[in-house]
């Protein structure tokens, strides 16, 4: 496989050249069973159904069902998304150490890292913003560790401001199994709240303009 193709697939763990599309590129990673794909689905749904944006989600498929590094990518844009894969990440959400190690180098120099702070111990890099959340502990405090991913989605909403909170809340309510809405919305609120109180960084401007030199 040529370097170009690897970069396009985003599988070599390095950030590639930005595309000539105005877009935000996101990767969510964790271990199988953490609800990585559901987290990606909720963010994508919030953007595409409730947030007035285009959002293309791709889940990476491995042969293993549980326990291995798992990831979902999202391209969010105000216009049409043509190229479906990501070339680097503007926002990396790491819910496991293995996932972080695998994808850390594709985070752009001005990218944002959101991480599960009890599971991931990131190496900070100049220019990148990194914000952690004890999402597993928060989920456990709600009585169900399984909603860790939804705490992270709430944290994502609070830190990035990518789409309005209400859009995210609607997407959470519409994506989780019937009967679990209340618990999940609570988890979402906890994550959002943590972002508001624990993170001092201002809401970040994440919409990437078309790259210089790629377009004429």
């Amino acid at each position: 496989m040529s370097d170009d193709r690897k970069r396009a697939a985003g599988d070599d763990g390095r950030a590639g050249a930005p595309l000539a599309e105005a877009r935000t590129e996101i990767r969510i990673t964790g271990f199988g069973g953490q609800g990585v794909v559901l987290a990606g689905h909720i963010i994508g749904r919030a953007c595409a159904i409730h947030g007035g944006k285009q959002a293309t989600m791709i889940q990476s498929f491995g042969p293993e069902a549980r326990g291995s590094a798992c990831s979902a990518t999202l391209v969010v844009s105000d216009g049409e998304v043509l190229y479906p894969y990501i070339r680097g990440t503007d926002i990396l959400v790491a819910m496991s150490s293995e996932g972080y190690e695998k994808y850390r180098d594709e985070l752009r120099d001005d990218g944002v890292l959101l991480f599960e702070q009890d599971l991931v111990h990131p190496t900070f890099k100049q220019g990148q913003k990194s914000v952690g959340v004890p999402s597993t502990r928060i989920a456990e405090s709600l009585g169900r560790a399984i909603v860790q991913n939804i705490v992270m989605v709430g944290f994502f909403a609070g830190v990035t401001g990518l789409v309005p909170e209400e859009a995210m809340r609607a997407a959470v309510g519409g994506s989780v199994p019937a009967g679990t809405e209340e618990l999940n919305l609570k988890a979402f609120a906890e994550g959002l709240d943590y972002a508001r109180h624990a993170v001092t960084a201002p809401t970040l401007e994440l919409r990437r303009p078309p790259a210089e030199g790629v377009t004429v």
């Binding site: 689905h41 595409a48 159904i49 285009q54 959002a55 293309t56 989600m57 791709i58 998304v81």
Partner: peptide, 8 residues
Amino acid sequence: CVGHMTER
């Protein structure tokens, strides 16, 4: 790609 791609 289209089969496993989620969009509106």
